[in-house]
Simulated scan of single mutants.
Amino acid sequence: MLYELYDLLNINILGYITIRAGISFFLALFFTLYMMPKFIRWAQRTSSVQPINEWAPENHKSKAKTPTMGGIVFIGATILASLLTIKFSNMFAVGAILTLVLFALIGFQDDYAKIKKSENLAGLKARTKLVMQIVASLIITSFLCFFADFNTDLYVPFIKTPIIEMGFFSIILWCLVIISTSNAVNLTDGLDGLATVPSLVALASFSIIIYITGNVTISTYLLMPNFNVGEVAIVAAALMGALTGFLWFNCHPAEVFMGDSGSLTVGAFLGYLAIISKSEILLLLIGSIFVIETISVILQVGSYKFRKKRVFLMAPIHHHFEMKKWAENKIIVRFWIVSILSNLIALMTLKIR
């Protein structure tokens, strides 16, 4: 809408991606801060609260009456702010909105099933959820190939030219990136604000990379690939604003949880950003906390299955530190620090080509 005003009334300032990204950030922040208290009161009134896993650490029992599904609010705020600020003719921005919508629907169904049955493990069956994620990912990646005309080259850090043209296999890789990142953020969302700040930091990093990738002059100077993806930075900024508003209520002690409707969607969106910025490999560093959490679960399950021994006291790894009697705030802040440092390193690699 704002871009259309630029076209219609020749308001030059609205033609700049940076200006509209800033506007989208504050719009999404305002929408979230305005709607979240109303949502919390509604959730308390309707008992739409977080069911606690019986295997969770003892201190989690006190969180049993905390409203969940807050992701619906901040994802909705992100979509609304984005629709008001993006250029609709940019297919990459449309693909970003599509990603948010599809995975929010999956997460909502999972959250609703848990709330309805009042049991943490009573959501969508793992196989059903995976099938839905695969279908959603195929829709998104097919959209990139056939409507956004996105190329299938694979880039790696430190090398200025693509190492391989993936062809059809790009669909497989991109689906894997979206699904794995979606589930990784979901695994991390176990403590108050634990997934929120690393997501914010990752979004900031990807916003910078995407803006550079969409700018001919800067991308040429840094020897990075150039595609017309800069508009997606506006959607990323909107999600950053919405998550900032959500953090106001999600910091310890949390008044609301994001639920699967938030964590699955944020993760899928990060995967989408990695794909369109040709940063699939760099995602491992940008999303370091999510990678660590996922690896801890894989190691725990694999070790117990084959050795009948546990690697950690409890997985994901943030529960391991809880079992070691670390204060919840200490775990959260230290994970935030690791995330910030790894993202700084990731951004430093952009100059090394």
Rank of each mutant, 00 (worst) to 15 (best):
S205E: 04
L203M: 07
T161V: 13
I115G: 11
N226R: 12
T217W: 14
L273N: 06
V266M: 10
S182Y: 12
A195C: 06
P51W: 04
L273T: 02
M323H: 08
I276T: 02
L313E: 07
G167Q: 09
N186S: 05
L203G: 03
A315G: 09
G95T: 10
K325I: 08
M258T: 10
D111P: 02
I289F: 09
A148G: 05
T349L: 13
I218M: 11
T161W: 14
L124F: 12
F206M: 02
A327H: 05
L5F: 09
A274R: 06
T196P: 00
N10H: 13
P37G: 05
S288V: 15
L191E: 03
S82L: 01
E322K: 00
S303Q: 00
P51S: 02
F31V: 07
C145R: 14
I164W: 12
I11A: 05
F158V: 06
L2E: 04
Y155P: 06
K160C: 12
L299Q: 14
L203I: 01
I331D: 08
W248G: 05
L350T: 00
A77W: 05
I19D: 08
F206L: 01
K160R: 11
N120H: 15
F92A: 02
I19P: 02
L8I: 15
A254I: 04
S182M: 10
N183W: 15
F269Y: 05
R20Q: 04
K38C: 06
V201A: 07
A268F: 04
N59A: 11
S263Y: 01
Q50K: 15
K324E: 14
F249L: 11
L5A: 08
V197K: 12
S303T: 00
A81E: 00
P316G: 08
S279D: 03
S118E: 15
P51I: 08
C175N: 11
I11T: 04
S118H: 15
Y272S: 09
W336D: 09
H60C: 11
K325N: 12
I218H: 09
T244D: 12
V235H: 05
F290D: 10
F108V: 13
F25L: 15
S205D: 08
S182R: 11
A96L: 02
I234M: 03
V73W: 01
P157F: 03
L33A: 06
L299R: 11
R20E: 05
M69K: 04
L344R: 03
A96R: 01
A184V: 06
C251T: 13
F31R: 06
G262L: 07
D153T: 09
F246R: 08
A96D: 10
V201S: 04
W174L: 08
F158Y: 11
S137T: 02
P67T: 01
D149M: 12
Y34N: 12
L282N: 06
G95W: 03
T85K: 02
I345D: 09
L121E: 14
T46W: 10
Q44P: 10
N250Y: 04
V185F: 08
A126N: 14
H252E: 14
A233Y: 12
